[in-house]
Computed example of a mutant assay.
Amino acid sequence: MRFKNPLGGVSLSVDALSAPFGKFTDVCRMIKIEHSVFALPYAWAGAVLAARGLPPLWSLFFLTIAMVAARSFAMAFNRLVDLPFDRDNPRTQNRPLVTGAITTKQTWAFCAFMAIIFVVACGCINQVCLWLSVPALIFSAIYSILKRFSPMCHFWLGATLGLAPLAGWLSVSPNSLTLPPLLLFLAVTFWVAAFDIYYAFQDMDFDMAFDLHSIPATCGAETALALAAFSHAMTSIFLLLAGFAAGLHWPWYVVWLGITTMLFVEHRLMKPQDLRHVNTAFFTLNGIISPVVLIGVVLGIYL
């Protein structure tokens, strides 16, 4: 991608600017930048709840930087740890690390850079966020190795993204942590676990062959679907309770009903024997749900 220099001379290339970590487009593919839509709205929702309105712009700005950096670190680290498996899995053989478009050395450098940005951004928010920054990075990294040992990896990933509303709340109110962000943490944990179980159906045979402990590979398709349905039910319940605990007004409950309906549709779309709709269930619907939660929180406060 190139931008013309308005003053003439050599044009600027985003890919050239990102050369230490690989081409910009390859880095975005590696970390699936579009998936930031899953966690970021929940972080903003936590901040809005703590402020009971628009959070301070300073904390909101650095919260956004911290969230993007933390997710980028976690995704890049996951790609490094999974590289031996990604080379053998037909579904993942076009990933930049597998093809050599990005080297492992560049990815380690990228991880270190994102970790530094995350810690600095947390320090710019407040002291509590700074203290929690390194433990949060470690927590996010554990998911990448957990699949080798436990099918609970889906719920660990859920809890990692579930930290988003807690982070948002602490960015505004570092000295108190009340029930609403904790209930949102539980809602996000179960929500992510459900769609990660769905996503794992794509690699069910591969995981069984390579002794990886996803829930579909460990428990079978029917049990996995039942656990995903249970997780969606818990998501709906905890979102409802979060609205009650936060004292949100009627628009939140309209949004909650819509989200619950989308979760039901998502579950109906998933059929282990027919994965044509897995991207719709995984990305499209869930990419809608998280911004809708944020909209519901804002409307529930102001209307």
Results as ranks from 00 to 15, higher is better:
192 V>N: 06
142 I>Y: 14
129 C>L: 15
129 C>G: 00
164 A>E: 04
146 L>P: 04
128 V>N: 00
158 G>Q: 08
202 Q>W: 12
185 F>V: 03
171 S>C: 12
143 Y>L: 09
132 L>D: 02
172 V>D: 07
170 L>T: 05
163 L>H: 03
163 L>R: 03
154 H>I: 07
168 G>E: 03
159 A>G: 14
201 F>E: 11
182 L>Q: 11
144 S>F: 04
193 A>E: 07
143 Y>M: 11
150 S>Q: 06
187 A>K: 01
164 A>D: 02
160 T>W: 00
201 F>K: 11
155 F>G: 05
173 S>W: 00
172 V>C: 09
182 L>S: 09
175 N>T: 09
151 P>N: 11
147 K>N: 09
177 L>I: 03
146 L>Y: 06
184 L>W: 06
199 Y>C: 13
139 F>L: 13
184 L>T: 01
150 S>P: 10
161 L>Q: 09
164 A>S: 15
169 W>C: 04
148 R>D: 12
184 L>Y: 07
170 L>C: 10
147 K>G: 11
158 G>A: 09
136 A>M: 09
168 G>N: 07
152 M>I: 09
192 V>W: 01
182 L>P: 01
194 A>V: 11
169 W>L: 09
146 L>S: 10
202 Q>L: 15
145 I>F: 15
166 L>K: 04
138 I>P: 04
150 S>N: 15
187 A>S: 14
149 F>A: 14
187 A>H: 03
172 V>M: 09
191 W>Y: 12
174 P>H: 05
172 V>S: 06
136 A>K: 00
139 F>S: 07
161 L>I: 08
142 I>P: 02
180 P>N: 07
173 S>K: 11
180 P>L: 08
184 L>K: 05
176 S>A: 14
198 Y>E: 13
169 W>A: 03
150 S>I: 03
128 V>P: 04
146 L>T: 10
152 M>A: 15
179 L>E: 06
141 A>L: 08
141 A>E: 08
126 N>M: 00
172 V>P: 08
160 T>Y: 03
131 W>Q: 08
204 M>H: 13
186 L>R: 00
168 G>A: 08
126 N>G: 03
192 V>T: 14
127 Q>P: 00
140 S>A: 15
188 V>Y: 03
174 P>K: 02
153 C>N: 14
179 L>A: 14
195 F>R: 12
179 L>K: 03
189 T>G: 07
189 T>W: 04
137 L>S: 01
150 S>H: 15
186 L>T: 02
151 P>R: 07
130 L>A: 12
199 Y>S: 13
201 F>Q: 11
137 L>E: 04
134 V>M: 08
150 S>C: 13
138 I>M: 11
149 F>W: 14
130 L>G: 01
186 L>K: 01
146 L>I: 11
170 L>Y: 02
162 G>R: 03
137 L>Y: 01
172 V>A: 08
188 V>T: 10
143 Y>A: 10
126 N>C: 04
174 P>L: 08
130 L>M: 10
163 L>S: 09
140 S>V: 12
202 Q>K: 14
167 A>R: 00
202 Q>G: 12
159 A>F: 04
142 I>A: 12
200 A>P: 10
170 L>H: 06
153 C>V: 14
168 G>W: 01
200 A>E: 13
164 A>V: 04
